[in-house]
Design a protein around this nucleic acid. Sequence first.
DNA 1: GTGCACCTGAGGTACGTCAATCAAAACCGG
DNA 2: CCGGTTTTGATTGACGTACCTCAGGTGCAC
Lengths: 346, 346
Amino acid sequence: MKAAIPKPTVHDLAREAGVSLATVDRVLNERPGVREKTVARVKAAVERIGYVRDTHAANLARRRQYRFAIVLPEGPNQFVDTLRSAVQEASGAQFAERALVEMIPIPSHDPHAVARTLNGLNTARLDGVAIMAPETPQVRDAVDRLKDEGLAVVALVSDLPSSARDFFVGINSFAAGRTAAVLMGRFLRGLTGHILVVTNTMQARDSIERRFGFDAVMADEFPALEVLPSIESHDDPERMRRCVREALASYGDIRGIYSMGSGNTPLLEALRGAGDLEGRVVIAHEMTPVTRQALLDGEVDAVITQNVGHLVRSALRVLRARCDGVEIFEPQERIRIDIVIRENLT
Amino acid sequence: MKAAIPKPTVHDLAREAGVSLATVDRVLNERPGVREKTVARVKAAVERIGYVRDTHAANLARRRQYRFAIVLPEGPNQFVDTLRSAVQEASGAQFAERALVEMIPIPSHDPHAVARTLNGLNTARLDGVAIMAPETPQVRDAVDRLKDEGLAVVALVSDLPSSARDFFVGINSFAAGRTAAVLMGRFLRGLTGHILVVTNTMQARDSIERRFGFDAVMADEFPALEVLPSIESHDDPERMRRCVREALASYGDIRGIYSMGSGNTPLLEALRGAGDLEGRVVIAHEMTPVTRQALLDGEVDAVITQNVGHLVRSALRVLRARCDGVEIFEPQERIRIDIVIRENLT
DNA sequence: GTGCACCTGAGGTACGTCAATCAAAACCGG
DNA sequence: CCGGTTTTGATTGACGTACCTCAGGTGCAC
């Protein structure tokens, strides 16, 4: 019931480097007051004996508590709701891992309000922030400020590439759009007609990129299918229903519907009224209770999504790694573009 | 830079329960010598103040080293190779988390040899085992014995449902087969013809189940496509090439090829020789360097797979949780059936 | 009411690391 | 080689838990 080679400790390190424990500690924690030469000697010893610091013991000793905030758009949104519950779930487990996770809602559509919220964060009481917000100059500046104050920052779901964020946890929207297009085109093999594209708003970066990827593939590989201009509901269910009905009426040959954003409920309502057309294919984004049920009912053929559980756990792992100054393990943090049909709905 | 509500410790627990630290310790670690009533009192206090034991501190104190073995089939197999490297990758990180992970090869096709290896494991030097092996009575008995000896046991990739294994980390093969069928049928929309099914051996439980799921969906939803009996290569590349060529020659209308197991290299070689048929669709299982390249080259249309990184990390997490007597967080351990096409190949 | 088994309390050491103090040693310019 | 500065060493007490010992307490059976 024992055995196992014991891992080298700071004591072994000190002996190996021929210095005292205090010096080892100063080197490991990058405290001042150690000569270059000594630092090198200790680091060499680290390599030699393969010392790895015991993070748990270290956290215990320094009574570390990670304090993270997750900034999410407020207001009713199916996808954000699933994200929120994923955060809830995760923060229970995180609590045991000495992390406190706080959710902070932001008004979705006002860049200034978003920036104000970010700037209002009490950086002294936080170690890291995960942010899901559309990229604007105000947000970029706010993120840079957070970084300046020494926080770890990750962009969640939607990237903030021009900012100083440490990492992006989410999927590539172009690729997501391309994936949707291939499924759409292949499911409609041999047919000619129009594709309807609906979204909440084309202002959002995601929508633009998805559409871009979608169009590129459709034009290239499925020229028999013509993609119509995007219908935007602007968060108005009635408008969504009306526009979809109108489009179905004006074009007799709408073979496929690509739903790039939220608003799936009114979309499906509008479709229920319409008769079935041969091979009609509906592809939507993001797994939510609505799209899940629609998959089961055969009203949606495929959902392109990202696992919210992974999203949240990954964001928290990355924040933690940043705080510890540890390398992240990239393959684990790469969020996949999930294709979900009824049969692989777990 | 401080604040944060301190988590309750054993001391708080002892005070709350009105007992001594020693008693708290005895209760928490299920040591004998405590009256039922006192145990209940402590447990009530745990609930009341929401005490959660600090696993890291506990592991530190007991100088815990988890010793895990991962039992994998030996011999050349693309999928197992990717699994092996995933284990390699993971065990580096695990080392820092006080776990030693050892890989143990087993002769793939001899149930007795498998059982012999399992029975030969030094259970005194192990805390848990993850096993990828076909289910046989011998293996079942060996697993039960390991459980009797107090080890945590998880079945990896292929379930051992009749054994006493703690958990299964992998995907449902029926569902995987169904998923392949839906893609096959939909990609071949409107076409009539035959589907070729190839595998290494139909002895394997996986193959049987995949085929079962595949057939069910094809018969139900795509009656225009007729599925041929499985071609088995029995690990012989030449045989695979020959049989595939023969099949392609005998049937002029083979629209799709479903590769249920390994042997993708010779399959693809055989296909390269044959001319293109309208809409020909190839669907394979398991992401390996071969299938990945084939996706990129357009030789394979979709791959049904499971993420080996998740597989391994999940198995190790479950083993660890079992050893700690802690509940596992199910949603995180549920392995998804991934559908990969060129566009969502990350 | 005595003996004995069984419970419980008090206290200590350890785990690997952090953080702090104080004293000793090495270094350096003049 | 002096005095001051910079580097180092030795030591100590946490952190939250495990595990051990020893002493004292309780209750039960006879």
